[in-house]
């Protein structure tokens, strides 16, 4: 995984609440056996007509947001299916930060495995950033993971919380499996004890 670097760019406003992973990447694109190439189908049914032409007023089709690296979203973003195709599609499109009041659990965890930073902020902060995002190219939102801050265009800074371990992995582009292998002795010991105590498991 690539190291997460600070992001400063245009943010697409998506104020709808409960944006689910079926919306982010509809099921017909789950037939792939690869991780790559899903960006073109991100938000497919909101973004394209049935004939494949673009729906002009969808935010990511508007000239200002075609290269958005940040999404500011309504609460409970990423609810529903566990499909990791959702963060794969976001990342492939070029989005590396999603800001919302709240995220669904599985989606939130999946983001960190793919170099995407989901940022949870209180309502007022999200509202300020959502306003900022609607200004298109006239606004740039800056995200600093090391210092855990998001800055609006006018310089207003919002601090955010992130799990220290997840932050460390994101900043250093670390592979979880490699890290867990360093604790293989603990897993071996656990397995041995469990086989004695509860052999049916």
């Amino acid at each position: 995984m690539d190291k997460f670097t600070n992001v400063s760019g245009v943010a697409a406003p998506m104020p709808l609440v409960n944006i689910d992973t079926d919306m982010i990447i509809p099921k017909q694109f789950l037939k792939t056996i690869k991780r790559s190439g899903l960006g073109v189908n991100l938000f497919d049914e909101m973004r394209y007509n049935a004939d494949g032409s673009e729906i002009a007023d969808f935010v990511l089709n508007q000239p200002a947001y075609r290269n958005a690296e940040i999404i500011v979203a309504g609460e409970n973003f990423g609810c529903g299916s566990s499909r990791e195709h959702a963060p794969w599609a976001l990342k492939d499109f070029g989005v590396s930060v999603v800001i919302s009041e709240s995220f669904a659990d599985i989606f939130y965890n999946n983001c960190f495995k793919n170099g995407i930073l989901p940022i949870m902020l209180p309502k007022e902060a999200v509202e300020t950033l959502m306003d900022d995002a609607t200004k298109g190219e006239n606004a740039r939102i800056s995200v600093d993971l090391e210092n855990q801050t998001v800055s609006a265009t006018d310089g207003t800074e919002f601090a955010f919380e992130v799990d220290a371990f997840k932050k460390h992995c994101l900043l250093n582009g670390l592979d979880d499996i490699g890290l867990t292998y360093q604790k293989i002795d603990a897993i071996d010991a656990f397995e041995k004890a469990q086989a004695e105590k509860t052999p049916w498991l």
Binding site: E84, P87, K113
Partner: peptide, 8 residues
């Protein structure tokens, strides 16, 4: 879980 966690 997601696919990265499946692999894990």
């Amino acid at each position: 879980i997601g696919t990265s966690e499946v692999e894990h």
